[in-house]
Every structure is written in C-alpha cells, then in structure tokens.
Design a protein around this nucleic acid. Structure first.
Lengths: 150, 150
DNA sequence: TGCTAATAGATGCAAGGCTAATTAGTGTGA
DNA sequence: TCACACTAATTAGCCTTGCATCTATTAGCA
C-alpha cells in the first residue's frame, strides 16, 4: 500500500520549510503596516466570521487558545479589535473588529493576494487544487492524531 | 492566467497550519528522546551531508544562520555533533556527527517514518507526488523572492 | 440541591524563528 | 599593498507558539 515510502520524506521537509519561508516573506511584506502574518490571519478570520469566542477562533485557526490570547492582546492594544463579555456565558468573550480595522484588512488582503500570486506563479490550477486537498487532509488527520490518543 | 485566484487563499492557510501541526506532532513523538523536530532535522541533514559549514547547512535547511547557531549549541552540549575549524577558511567551522549520534538518528528516522506513514495514510502516491512538486517549487520561488529583491 | 467535571480565558516559562549588530577573517581594486 | 566591502559565526532582543497551571464559571449527575 505504501510501497513508495521514500517519496514521503522530501514531502515533510518541503512542507515545513516552505511554510516557514512563506510566513517569513509575509512578515516582510507586512512590515510597513506593523503587523505580522500571525496577527493578520487573526484579523482576516474575524472579518470572515465575527462575533465568535476565543476558543472557537483558536480552533478555526488551528492554534492553541493560549497562543491566541497574546495576539488578541496586541490587536486590542492596537485598537483593531474588541473583546466583549458574552451574553450567554459569563466565562466567555466575543470578538469584534473596530472601525479602524476594516481599511487595514482590505489593504492587507490586497498585499497578501499579490504576494500569493507572485509565489504561486507558474503552478497550474489543477496541481494547486490537488496540493490544497492533500494539505487539508493532513490537517484533519493531525487534528485526530493529536487529540485522539493523547 | 490566474483566473481562479480565490482558490489560492485556502492553500496558504492550509500550508501554514498543517506545517505547524506536523511539527507539533513530531515534537510530541520525539519527546522521550529529548529532541525536537528542529534538532532532528539538523541531525538528519548532517547525516546526509557531513562536513559542511554552518552557512551551508542553514541554507539547505531554509533557516537563518543565526537560528542554526542555537540548535548547534544544544546538539554540541548533548554530545551529538562537533564543530571543527575549517582547514581553508579561518572564519568558518565544519560540522561533524559524533559516534553517539548515529544510533539516535537511526531511531528517530524510524519514528519519523512511522508517523509520516500514519499522517499520509490514504493519500495517493500520485497526489503526494504532485503536492511535493508544488511545495518544492514554492520553496525555490520564495528563496528567489527573499534574496533577490531584498 | 450540592459536589465534581469540564470549559473559557489568562499567565508563566521555554523553544524556535527572525533581524540587527558585533567580531574576526577574506578578497578586491586602486 | 592597503583600504574597503563582503562573509562566517555569534550575540542580543523581539515575536510566535506550545505546554502547564491558575481562576472563574458552567454543566452534569447523584
């Protein structure tokens, strides 16, 4: 079934290092805006789906809730988001973008799309679709593995 | 040419988060050996290609030389590698595995292969090959972009 | 009802990554 | 040959992430 195990090793290396390099490149691109890739992804996710709680947001981002706390602290200090007490659960807080966030998000989305196109240039839509499918599957699998048998 | 730009966004997200999760999983798997994914990848690369200098190794790993320094410090403290002065350039040092490293590398390679198979289970060789190709291409592209236009 | 489990958010600490700056050594062009 | 630019390794300081732990609150069950 897995008779081509050798082919798997380069995959891991490419995955981890390309992700790191991509992140680094985005940090560079966003530098003038004083925001990192990490914070940008929080803002972007919120713009797609506001009013969520921190745990929910952390889950969709695939990071720990504790990690998110710091990003939110920074974004709140920068006046880009607000935490409001949840109406239904006094432990929880819901997250909201401020007015200041919208133009920034728009600009970052542009910059991010531009570099994406730049980086993915020359890769066929077909291949990209397959690669995306493979990566999603891996994410799902790792989610199971990490939580399941802990 | 890029008439399906929308399809690119999910790719970035999947890439960055699957890489993060994969790394986390490997850290967990290696925990008993007191080594992390980061250090393991240094050892593995050295086992493929010994006698290189730090800059060279950093380049093949896709990390900054400054980042590598700390990994090497740790590996040297653990008695797994040695830094020796280069014969041809007094600024440079060449890297070497110690005898203690080999059995450890073998064991880690096994563990790493096992989890790889586990994670990639159910993905066709064909798709995996395409995904690998896409990732390598991205790595190459990012290398150009980051160095080229500073 | 009242005790115990689980959950939401926050905090402390360590690892890994990056950039900027420092030190030592090479190389090159006038 | 000598001054200046470049390169190899290192250090310091910052950000992102993770795990472990804590507090407050909720929810489940006896």
């Amino acid at each position: 079934m897995q008779n081509d195990i050798e082919a798997q090793e380069p995959f891991t290396r490419s995955l981890i290092s390309s992700a790191r390099m991509w992140r680094r490149y985005l940090d560079l691109v966003f530098r003038d805006l004083e925001l990192s890739q990490a914070r940008w992804s929080v803002l972007f996710e919120l713009s797609q789906n506001e009013e969520v709680t921190q745990v929910e947001l952390a889950r969709t981002l695939g990071i720990e809730a504790a990690t998110l706390v710091r990003q939110l602290d920074g974004l709140e200090d920068a006046g880009l988001i607000e935490r409001r007490p949840s109406a239904t659960d006094r432990r929880a807080k819901t997250l909201h973008l401020t007015k200041a966030a919208y133009p920034l998000i728009e600009k970052m989305e542009e910059m991010s799309a531009t570099s994406r196109t730049e980086i993915l240039e020359g890769i066929s839509q077909q291949d990209l679709r397959i690669a995306t499918k493979v990566l999603s599957r891996i994410t799902a699998r790792l989610e199971n593995l990490s939580s399941g048998e802990n």
